[in-house]
């Protein structure tokens, strides 16, 4: 009887020791040089392996932070405190990058832009954009307003009002999730300091663009002529503001002279 107990202890203890030695040996023998920042971030994370960040466990997220430049605020369990510490490790706070903000390059809200058809499918831009004729929106470059960007935003900073996505500039962090989610590429990132921007993406000639949307840029080049800084150029039949050249003049003649008011003050 006593022997049985001894056997049990010996077998389990023996297995434990054998495996312990094996692992210790393996971790030395097969050690892989990794970026020390990965283990530093891993130490900061809660270690719950909840997968809420979209990566497999905390290790996966730590590696993604360093290797793929993943945003530092993905850890829902750790909250802002952890995000700050990861940012400190990655040094993203130190780099004073120009803060960006999302901008919807479209003003075709309901009543301004026409519709091709009545769409009754999934209420999602990805799904709607593959409908024959490139979706229900008559303008195949404009915002469809089904809110795929709204779902992509983690900060409640973009909303669809009257069939058009609108960005809340105070809440927007410039992460670019909405821009990546938009199947039309209507949403872009612009510097937060930019004063004016062209709210239209339709590069087709003015007559064609005007037919589908009353708010379209018709490519008349008026803004190019009136700009005091030479910051506006034409790309196809749509105007583009170069934020680096735009001095942000107080009169902003480009916005007042635009016949369709496609250039907006921010």
């Amino acid at each position: 009887m006593n022997l049985q107990v001894l056997y049990a202890v010996a077998v389990m203890g023996g297995l434990g020791v054998v495996f312990g030695c094996l692992l210790a040996f393996a971790s030395k023998k097969f050690a892989v040089q990794t970026d020390p920042r990965i283990s530093a971030i891993r130490a900061v994370l809660p270690g719950a392996n909840c997968g809420g960040c979209g990566f497999p466990g905390c290790d996966g997220y730590a590696a993604a932070c360093v290797n793929e430049g993943c945003p530092t605020n993905r850890c829902a369990a750790g909250g802002p405190a952890v995000a700050e510490r990861i940012a400190a490790i990655m040094g993203v706070d130190a780099a004073a990058a120009e803060p960006m903000v999302a901008f919807v390059r479209c003003r075709g809200e309901n009543g301004k832009s026409g519709k091709n058809c009545v769409y009754l499918g999934y209420s999602d831009c990805q799904a709607a954009s593959v409908v024959p004729g490139r979706g229900p929106e008559a303008c195949s470059f404009g915002c469809m307003g089904f809110g795929t960007c709204v779902k992509a935003c983690s900060f409640d900073a973009i909303h669809v009002e009257n069939g058009l996505a609108r960005v809340d500039r105070d809440k927007c962090t410039g992460c670019g999730a909405c821009a990546a989610a938009c199947p039309r590429g209507v949403i872009g990132l612009i510097p937060k300091s930019a004063r004016v921007a062209v709210a239209c993406s339709n590069p087709l000639p003015g007559a064609v663009a005007r037919k589908v949307c009353t708010a379209a840029c018709i490519g008349c080049s008026m803004c190019v002529k009136v700009c005091l800084d030479g910051a506006i150029s034409m790309k196809g039949a749509v105007a583009v503001v170069d934020p680096a050249k735009c001095a942000g003049c107080s009169t902003a003649p480009c916005t007042t002279k635009c016949p369709t008011k496609a250039i907006v003050t921010l």
Partner: peptide, 13 residues
């Protein structure tokens, strides 16, 4: 014990 140790070992290797 065996599964945990083995998986860790395989991962390292």
């Amino acid at each position: 014990l065996i599964i945990a140790a083995l998986v860790q070992f395989v991962e390292i290797v």
